[in-house]
Design a protein around this nucleic acid. Sequence first.
DNA 1: TCCAAAACCTAACACTAGTTAGAAAATAGG
DNA 2: CCTATTTTCTAACTAGTGTTAGGTTTTGGA
Lengths: 225, 225
Amino acid sequence: MTKKLAKSAISQKRVLDAAAKIFRDYGYAGTTMRAIADEADLRAGSIYYHYKSKDDLISAVLDIGIRAVTDNVEAALKALPETATGRERIEAAIRAHLSAIIEVGDYTLATRRALGQVPEAIRARNTRMRDMYGSVWQKILADAHDRGEFRTSANLTLARLFILGALNWTVEWFKPGGRSIDDVAREFASVVLDGLSGNGGTGAIAEEVSPPAKAKRSAPRISVA
Amino acid sequence: MTKKLAKSAISQKRVLDAAAKIFRDYGYAGTTMRAIADEADLRAGSIYYHYKSKDDLISAVLDIGIRAVTDNVEAALKALPETATGRERIEAAIRAHLSAIIEVGDYTLATRRALGQVPEAIRARNTRMRDMYGSVWQKILADAHDRGEFRTSANLTLARLFILGALNWTVEWFKPGGRSIDDVAREFASVVLDGLSGNGGTGAIAEEVSPPAKAKRSAPRISVA
DNA sequence: TCCAAAACCTAACACTAGTTAGAAAATAGG
DNA sequence: CCTATTTTCTAACTAGTGTTAGGTTTTGGA
């Protein structure tokens, strides 16, 4: 039995969802409180009963965006058996990441669109959360590598950046009703995992100096939806 | 001997570069003409001598962004010998794409940050240009597939979306002075190309129904930096 | 049903942004 | 150096934005 929500909580959620949508469409600076209010069937002044400021609102949207992804991926990893291979873990993480960004699409797209323009303190906080998420990936990639599931020369930092870059981009093109999230995740995982485990066909690979990955734990900060 | 530019052309370029930088940092709506003018060592009113409007300016920035990438990739492909393999062509395209987005980083990042908020007509025009670019990729991937360089089950549309997604993300983390563009391109190409040509280790691949790629020529529109 | 608290509306404030027209300064060529 | 043209500056206009304080309406519990 769903617990009955107070009017306030109901309206606050409506405002939040409206905000995610408008921030998604118009970015931070292009979003007006009047537009959010219209979307939420309120007047702009009323938003201030629920949120202290526009910044308060965008901050909440950004939090939800990154938290949904991180929580989903961590839960998926936790649900795997102890005996899961590195490949299986990575594939599960890919699937969970995709699921999360599609499920809270407005929030994650709003992050993509707005993050670069928000006040510095807000951006810094969100960046820290995303860096934490990035380290989850670094860990599962390193585990797989350590277990010999990848070729020795694989650069895990670059791999992580490519993977997350491509995953984050999916919100731009994924359309529910077309290919399923499972399909997309499986195809992507196979390309990535085969690519990381393959020996390649080019002599250029053989020239790679190793071990490259271990020394790169302080990789550049990246942006995650 | 460099041809002497008129003052007007010199100033116009300065305004354009300033615009790219400010749009990059603040997005479309968050960018003020005063900020651009400051960056260009002018006053806001002066910009209107060179550009009709803010929209005129962003339009020019967006054009340069996508054109740099498209031209660079097409030139790189053209420079290859007729005997080049599909792998070689794809790797060259990856390298050219990376080079372009790093070289005109302000313009491509400005596109990433601003495109979603610009007036519809501007966005539509840029989208058409990007779709044309996407078809360049679809073609070189299809060629490689046709020549048997990829596994039969490879989904070229998804591959293209992953590749371009990951490539477009590099502007967020690539720092000149670190790894060279060549290194990054080579590593990325090996992951992608091995992944597309590999047979994989999972039975799930074998269940893929083919031919998947040929029927997907009308793939969803994607966004390219 | 009544009434206090919660939730929302409204009008206004202080400030900002894109743009314009005319004035002023800079440039370029004879 | 002079002068016409080009380039830039300036002040102002119109419209818009985040936010506030007080009034009004709605909600929820007794």
